Measured scan of single mutants.
Amino acid sequence: MPSETPQAEVGPTGCPHRSGPHSAKGSLEKGSPEDKEAKEPLWIRPDAPSRCTWQLGRPASESPHHHTAPAKSPKILPDILKKIGDTPMVRINKIGKKFGLKCELLAKCEFFNAGGSVKDRISLRMIEDAERDGTLKPGDTIIEPTSGNTGIGLALAAAVRGYRCIIVMPEKMSSEKVDVLRALGAEIVRTPTNARFDSPESHVGVAWRLKNEIPNSHILDQYRNASNPLAHYDTTADEILQQCDGKLDMLVASVGTGGTITGIARKLKEKCPGCRIIGVDPEGSILAEPEELNQTEQTTYEVEGIGYDFIPTVLDRTVVDKWFKSNDEEAFTFARMLIAQEGLLCGGSAGSTVAVAVKAAQELQEGQRCVVILPDSVRNYMTKFLSDRWMLQKGFLKEEDLTEKKPWWWHLRVQELGLSAPLTVLPTITCGHTIEILREKGFDQAPVVDEAGVILGMVTLGNMLSSLLAGKVQPSDQVGKVIYKQFKQIRLTDTLGRLSHILEMDHFALVV
């Protein structure tokens, strides 16, 4: 994948999101292997301009796509893939009243899908469409860049269908997702969380590099694949309309690839034109409109599966009536509230959605109805927002919020430890010299600072030695090549209790 991002070429006709291997024109390309080798690009942008032909009021008969309808489940399912879809609609009884809503608040519980998330729908649909058009064949390999849930859905379907599955996901995604993927037989590649989507090191860039190296491999490409919004247009939206008897006044959905909100909203605009569509985008993402909503100094966020630093091709923002931004604290607070007060075992993005819903639905009156999409299960986040310690460490809970008995030293300040200034190293000294210094002084790690004293990161003896043994660096290389740029900081005025929580999850903390 090139470091400079080429513009994806656009073909003359058809839909841009065809499933299957992508040609340089962004659509299915038939021909000899030699032709494909000559024409197939190194990668295709996940934010390529959409060429979708959908228009409100256009006859369904003019759609270029294969459409399906929700099917009634048999008493005995032939395999677990038949437990994807037909998820329950559940009334939220307490939270709406707590925040003064007059309307009825309903939750579409997508964590009841077989793999635990709304992404099971698009995973199965992308595979079925690729099999139907002859792209996927027995023994082929599926590769997908994902925040985890699409990966789980694909790995689940691949396990049943017999495909090899490789999932490329950023490091910030939970260990629970990784464990589930491994249990399903998927191979996992992790990428830096802070890598831009168009960087060769991003999950998108690495996935395309693997595709170019592995024979008979395919990126189904949830960011561009029409099967993504079509899955929701054909099934999720129809289920909502049936469950609500066609009567709903507002739908609120958090947005990642945009397939969920695009597919549902398009069908609702056709069948229930008075329904307002509300999009939820986390602070630090750029999906919301108008652009002024996205202006923030924050560039990272903890909530998973929603928000991006690019506009995915499948996201149709014209069908969203209003956007709201959400933050991590309210997302996790509301997710825990949904679990504790409503018994809905949902993930953090569901918290984002409901946090926005109780604001947006203030305009609705008694007798009206708001539906929220709860995308995934708490299963993926047992060591994250479900953990009091994690919430404390991230600053989303305060010590006084917890009532468990603490040891005698818990409320003492870090400054009472009488710490001395640490050994520091410059980023320009060599790895070999740094190892000598650390061994001589008896230290395992040291902060790396520039000549102005600005902290650049941390270097550890173990990481340097393993990097040297693996051949990633040489003793003569500058130590700046092996620094940890993500590390926890703590102030002298913070409590030892807070430091204790940090050290339970990290090997060190830097006192500043």
Rank of each mutant, 00 (worst) to 15 (best):
E9N: 13
P12Q: 10
G14V: 11
G20H: 12
S23N: 04
K25I: 13
G26Y: 07
S32N: 05
K36V: 03
K36T: 08
A38N: 10
W43F: 15
C52V: 05
T53H: 09
T53R: 09
L56T: 10
A69K: 10
A69I: 04
A71D: 12
K72P: 10
K75V: 14
I76Q: 04
P78F: 07
K83D: 10
P88N: 04
P88L: 06
V90Q: 03
I95L: 06
G100H: 02
G100R: 03
G100V: 09
L101H: 00
A107F: 05
E110H: 02
F112H: 00
G116N: 13
G116E: 13
V118P: 08
D120K: 07
I122V: 03
S123C: 04
S123K: 07
L124K: 11
R125F: 11
A130I: 01
A130L: 04
G134P: 08
K137D: 08
D140G: 07
T141F: 13
I142L: 10
T146W: 01
T146R: 01
G151Y: 00
L154T: 01
G162Y: 01
I166W: 01
I167K: 08
E176N: 02
K177I: 00
K177Y: 00
K177D: 00
K177W: 00
G185T: 00
A186V: 06
T191M: 02
T191G: 01
T193P: 11
R196L: 10
D198R: 06
H203S: 09
H203I: 03
W208Y: 08
W208P: 08
R209T: 07
L210D: 02
L210K: 08
K211E: 11
N212E: 10
E213F: 08
I219R: 07
L220Q: 02
Q222E: 05
L230P: 04
H232D: 00
H232E: 00
T235S: 14
T235V: 06
D238M: 10
I240C: 00
I240V: 14
G246Y: 07
D249M: 01
S254R: 04
V255A: 07
T257V: 00
T257I: 02
G263K: 02
G263Y: 00
R266Q: 05
K267P: 03
K269E: 04
C272F: 12
P273Q: 08
G274C: 03
G274Q: 12
C275M: 10
C275G: 06
R276P: 10
